[in-house]
Amino acid sequence: MRFTLEIWRQKNAQDEGRFEVYEVDGISPNTSFLEMLDILNERLIKEGKEPVAFDHDCREGICGSCGLFINGRAHGPLPNITTCRLYMRHFKDGERIVIEPFRAKPFPVIKDLVVDRSALDRIIQKGGYISVNTGSAPDANSIPIPKAVADRAFDYATCIGCGACVAACKNASAMLFVAAKVSHLAMLPQGQPERRQRVKRMVAQMDSEGFGHCSNTGACAVECPAKIPLSAIAQLQRDYIWANLTPDLYAR
């Protein structure tokens, strides 16, 4: 297969950046999108040019590194998928493919298609944890949790922190990401001690980082490779209202 690639090139954070056009040919339909970029990069290196920088690690959809904005969508034309699980057979032969970095104020471009997503880590540091006693490990299943509840908590826990929700959102909001973590821990008994402050602190950090507000467009859930549902956001809203409107019985 043959493709015309329009790729965003940017030397560093200070550089203006621009699109450059590359032709690739002889690509097997079963080449993954990242392998296609590898093939391009090998050629660029042989030609003595700077290869295209892009983030990737596991290449099996679990690490969340491979954030690329492809033909106007986070992680390309398929819903609920990571870029590493996208194949060239998902494109038409001869297609023009526009590849951009994820765009958001809290995601500054480091180089070419690589952005700094540590803003998401800082939100997690603010409340995405539970307190446990150190010492001997507690017995497995010593806290009874109904299967249905455990399943829901697990669904919310599968967020891989890829940032596609932010990239796809018209307001560059991180709500789905924050809501996935808030809802995951809200389901479980272990998450209760910090529940009230978790939602407040994570929302405050989300705002401080410069992410936008949630308009409930639902674009995030369509692009989320972990299929985090919008019910996570409804749960965050409930926790936020509850944490702010009801008195904290244990506050000193």
């Binding site: 329009e6 965003w8 699109f19 904005f69 033909n71 106007g72 969508r73 034309p77 819903p79 526009v98 951009e100 765009r103 958001a104 104020k105 809290p106 796809a168 018209k170 307001n171 560059a172 909001s173 410069g210 992410f211 936008g212 467009t217 639902g218 674009a219 369509v222 692009e223």
Partner: peptide, 18 residues
């Protein structure tokens, strides 16, 4: 609105997800 994404996308196919 523009503050959270000062630089927008060259190509944005938002119709596909919202």
């Amino acid at each position: 609105e523009k503050k959270s994404r000062p630089k927008g996308y060259a190509l944005n196919n938002a119709g596909a997800n919202s």
